[in-house]
């Protein structure tokens, strides 16, 4: 093994333990209260996890939270970015989730059709 090989192993391995450092650029919070789950939040969460892995976005943290009280808009997803505030999305189906990853997380432009609240 050379030093460079060690570096490569480290870069790859770091990604697998990123959750334990609490360091991330963007945090995606999926509302997983009773009504969220009833509205399909589990599928939404899975979609985020799969899509983020597929695109290799290692600085994105996906987590879950209780409900926000916006039952009619479930599943509700919050995207928070360091220094840029929060965007709250409603009715996030599998397809919308994929779209949010592609447009918001990768390109930085929120998916306007599903936005229900913006907190600076």
């Amino acid at each position: 093994m050379k030093l460079e090989d060690l570096k490569k192993i480290r870069e790859k391995a770091e990604k697998d333990i990123v959750l334990r450092d609490g360091k991330s650029r963007i945090k995606v919070t999926v509302g997983m209260g009773t009504s969220g789950i009833a509205a399909g939040a589990r599928e939404t969460l899975k979609a985020f996890l799969e899509e983020i892995e597929k695109r290799g976005l290692h600085d994105v943290l996906v987590t879950q939270a209780g409900e926000k009280g916006l039952s009619s808009h479930e599943p509700v997803v919050t995207v928070s970015e360091e220094g840029k505030g929060q965007v709250v999305y409603g009715n996030v189906t599998r397809d919308v989730a994929v779209k949010i990853v592609a447009e918001h997380l990768v390109n930085g432009s929120p998916v306007s059709a599903n936005i229900i609240e913006v907190n600076k």
Binding site: R20, L49, I52, V62, Q64
Partner: peptide, 9 residues
Amino acid sequence: MKKRLDVLI
């Protein structure tokens, strides 16, 4: 799939 939780026992 991306892991969302690390559970350390």
